[in-house]
């Protein structure tokens, strides 16, 4: 059950954007889809929502192929970072259009959210700032009846107060509907605690997949005098390092050896999701 993405490949000309993506979204969970700019996140989301076609592979919802089944497609909503709405259209009219496409729409909830974010729905979409465009698209995403809601950079242009409000509303909505949310964002630090499972995508492939807690349980910073740190980290999967004078730190992913004696001079700490992400996705030469 849920959405299954099988061996998705996508090529634009000579450029292979997705190189065999396999993943699954089960009902009632909040997922993070993390990747650097150009990693292929938006392309993958557009394929799942059947806005573009893959070069190879399939996307199914409860076993039905999404791109040729309208009832499956209705269950998927993608809020994308692109602006697909006509600039001259009033927001109220855009809500009506959404209702036509998705069968129903929660206007009471939309009006409540619009009031909370101080958004006037009589405005034209083209008049909105970047932040308010995101807010409008978020309101639509929270009010459509789709069971799988994909949010591609939902925080784009939102100020800190509006982000707080968004996180609150997202958790409230999730508690009531228990729908599946898939969030793609660069604000990893702010989203980390909201996520139950995470996918990290790099160069068109899934690099890490799993429960956030399990993933973080395998990520460590080993720090202390360089010699001691290197001795302790020998044979472990070191994904990055850092130094401050004589103090040296190795980032490790994949667990440590519990049998190994930890010297008094060396500290062993867990990483947060953002620190792990940065070290896993750094290109050579980047610090």
């Amino acid at each position: 059950m849920g959405i299954e993405v099988k061996n998705i490949k996508k090529r634009f000309g000579k450029h292979e954007v997705l190189r065999g993506i396999n993943l699954e979204f089960v009902p009632g969970k909040i997922y993070g889809l993390l990747g650097r700019n150009g990693a292929g996140k938006s392309t993958l989301l557009n394929i799942i929502a059947a806005r573009i076609f893959p070069t190879a592979g399939t996307v199914t919802l409860d076993g039905k192929t999404v791109c040729d089944d309208d009832s499956a497609l209705e269950q998927i909503y993608l809020m994308s970072e692109r602006n697909l709405y006509p600039e001259g259209e009033r927001l109220k009219k855009l809500l009506k259009t959404t209702e036509l496409l998705y069968g129903s729409f929660d206007y009471t909830y939309a009006n409540k959210l619009a009031a909370e974010f101080s958004l006037d729905l009589n405005q034209k979409f083209g008049k909105l700032s970047t932040g308010y465009r995101s807010i409008f698209k978020l309101i639509v995403a929270l009010c459509v009846p789709a069971r799988y809601v994909f949010l591609d950079e939902p925080d784009l242009g939102l100020d800190a107060n509006h982000r707080e409000l968004f996180y609150r509303e997202l958790m409230e909505n999730y508690a009531q509907t228990h729908r599946t949310f898939i969030v793609s964002t660069h604000l990893i630090g702010e989203f980390a605690n909201l996520l139950e499972r995470v996918f990290i995508i790099k160069n068109g492939q899934i690099l890490v997949a799993g429960e956030v807690e399990d993933v973080l349980a395998k990520a460590y910073l080993i720090a202390g005098p360089k010699e001691d740190v290197c001795k302790y980290s020998a044979g472990l999967n070191v994904i990055g390092h850092e130094s401050l004078g004589n103090i040296y730190g190795n980032y490790v992913f994949g667990g440590v050896d519990d049998e190994r004696h930890l010297p008094d001079t060396v500290s062993l700490e867990h990483l947060d999701l953002q620190k792990l992400f940065i070290n896993l996705t750094n290109e050579k030469g980047e610090k």
Binding site: L221, A223, E242, L244, I247
Partner: peptide, 9 residues
């Protein structure tokens, strides 16, 4: 002793 850890994980 703890190094580099500016927020508990």
């Amino acid at each position: 002793r703890v190094y580099f850890n500016f927020n508990s994980a």
